[in-house]
Simulated assay, not measured.
Amino acid sequence: MATADSLSKKQRKRSDYGFFQAHQTRWFDNDMYAHLNNAVYTHLFDTIANTWLIKECGMDPFSYNNPTPGHSSSTSSGKVGADMIGLIVSTHADFFASVRFPDLLEVGLRVNRLSKSSVTWEVGIFKSGEEDVKMVGTYTHVFVLRETMRVSKDGMEEKTRRGLEKLLVKEGAKL
């Protein structure tokens, strides 16, 4: 039996998401039932969220080279490496229709909740050119200090928060 939450997610449209990435499915993305393997969805979650964290939040894992907690490191490129990383602590997915190779997918991203040290993302999977969502997934990152793997008393870094706020669902929007 579908829950009210699941039925609400099934109504998602492209306009409910603030950032998109295209993904060309690959032959080996299919499972033996000729639809996208569930593990591929997790890769899509990780790819779009980490793209946003790198481009908009300054959390570029490849620019980090400072072993001292509490001090962001600068690189020769001028980028700032984050002293924090996001650990996934929960995931959930609601499937509404199948996708498979050779579908071209459009993956949408938004932030449903933002706390002092965590973010709950929502990812919507759409077939290119179609308005109806095929899958909606949510997952939560908790931001911890890279060196100690513990939450900072100050919460997440300010640049990260500012980037996440760009995708935060506005008051009164459907969660």
Rank of each mutant, 00 (worst) to 15 (best):
T160Q: 10
M149Q: 15
D46N: 02
S8V: 06
R14L: 12
T68S: 08
R161T: 06
G129W: 03
N65D: 15
T3P: 08
K127M: 10
H92Y: 13
G81R: 06
S98R: 10
F28S: 11
M84Q: 15
D60A: 02
D60I: 02
R26V: 08
V119G: 01
V40I: 10
N50H: 08
K153G: 03
K159G: 10
L145R: 12
N38C: 05
K174W: 12
L145G: 09
N50C: 06
F143P: 01
K79H: 14
I54M: 11
H71S: 11
V107L: 10
K153T: 13
G124K: 08
Q11F: 00
T25G: 04
M135S: 13
F96N: 06
E131M: 06
N112Y: 01
D154P: 05
G108D: 02
N30W: 09
E147Y: 02
D16S: 04
L167N: 08
T120Q: 13
M32H: 11
G172M: 03
L109T: 07
G163N: 04
K10D: 12
L104P: 01
A82Y: 04
S118P: 08
L109E: 05
M135E: 14
F45N: 03
T148C: 05
G86P: 09
G172Y: 12
K9L: 11
K174Q: 14
L87D: 07
D132W: 02
A82M: 00
V119A: 10
N38M: 08
S8Q: 14
A2M: 14
R162V: 12
R26Q: 15
L175R: 13
S76Y: 12
N65W: 15
A2G: 10
T148L: 02
T25K: 09
S63Y: 13
G172Q: 11
D94N: 12
L7T: 09
K166M: 15
K55H: 14
D16R: 02
D83T: 15
H71G: 03
